[in-house]
């Protein structure tokens, strides 16, 4: 439970950080909140030769709303999002999701960008990003690029970022009030990673679903968007019956893994149970 030895640097500016990441040092790794990386180092599942600590880059700690986008800086901590005053269906989804990330000590250190870069398929932030088709901004000394969430998550612990790139911020869409959002997840204990998590964003106009997005965690090696559930919802009359048939469609569509926490059959059952709970009346509060 002791990491193998490593070098440690703590740049003062973004530019300095990007230069360090590009200086050719092998196995250099960014450390942000350390809430995933440090346990992995202690288990020696990660053995970086050098850590680049981005803790001083305070410009990455801001949440800014510009037009119809909310830009969340990579260093924004989970707890900041849990307490965000942001209104509307987006604000409520952020607060509800953040509350399900680990335990309070983890939420006060762990960061939004760190979660995305870590790319755990059951992570609330990875799912939310995928759900809302967010755009992820990464930078290197070579320049800046914007990666759509659909392309960002490659598989477990793997993203589309290059080793010299730093995730700087994520653009989330402001959601108008005709959206209903919600999250429901199942974990064995409070604070554990979900076995299955379902996030939903549906637009309801005169009782009819006019747009639907469903993201499911724990059923694939990356955040999963359920085309089947979205199709089942679209054009339907919003209500428990519709949610249940969407849940059936999603359960048929997913091909979940089996492990000590539950086999594929059980995970499908959880999809059936959780999808309606994520979006049922009251869930959007």
């Amino acid at each position: 439970m002791k990491p193998s030895s490593f070098d440690y640097v703590r740049p003062n500016t973004l530019q300095e950080a990007l230069e360090l990441l590009a200086d050719g040092t092998e196995d250099s790794k960014v450390i942000s909140g350390g809430q995933s990386l440090v346990p992995m180092m202690n288990f020696r599942l990660a053995r970086p030769a050098r850590l680049v600590d981005i803790g001083r880059l305070s410009e990455l700690e801001v949440i800014r709303t510009v037009d119809d986008r909310v830009h969340v800086g990579a260093r924004v901590r989970h707890v900041q999002l849990q307490n965000t005053p942001l209104g509307g269906p987006l604000g409520s989804l952020l607060r509800r999701s953040a509350a399900l990330v680990g335990h309070l000590p983890i939420r006060t250190r762990g960061t939004f960008g760190g979660s995305l870069a870590h790319s755990d398929a059951a992570s609330e932030w990875c799912l939310l990003t995928r759900l809302l088709d967010a755009e992820i901004t990464v930078r290197s000394i070579r320049g800046e690029r914007v990666i759509p969430a659909a392309e960002f998550f490659v598989s477990v612990f793997t993203t589309a970022m290059e080793p010299d790139e730093l995730l700087t911020s994520v653009a989330l869409p402001v959601l108008p009030d005709d959206h209903r959002t919600g999250i429901a997840e199942f974990a064995r204990r409070a604070g554990d990673f979900a076995i299955v998590a379902v996030l939903g964003d549906v637009t309801v106009s005169d009782g009819t679903v006019t747009a639907a997005r469903i993201a499911i965690g724990g059923v694939d090696d990356k955040p999963f968007r359920s085309a089947a559930a979205e199709k089942a919802l679209l054009g339907g009359t919003f209500g428990l019956d519709l949610l249940q048939s969407a849940a059936e469609a999603a359960a048929d569509e997913v091909d979940p893994p089996s492990d000590a926490h539950g086999d594929a059959v059980y995970r499908r059952d959880l999809v059936r149970a959780l999808l309606p709970r994520a979006l049922a009346a009251g869930a959007a509060a």
Binding site: F43, R188, R189, A190, G191, D192, F193, H261
Partner: peptide, 12 residues
């Protein structure tokens, strides 16, 4: 590890 072996916490 304690990710797989699950002692209940106060919450449970």
């Amino acid at each position: 590890s304690l990710m797989d072996y699950l002692p209940p916490t106060l919450a449970e």
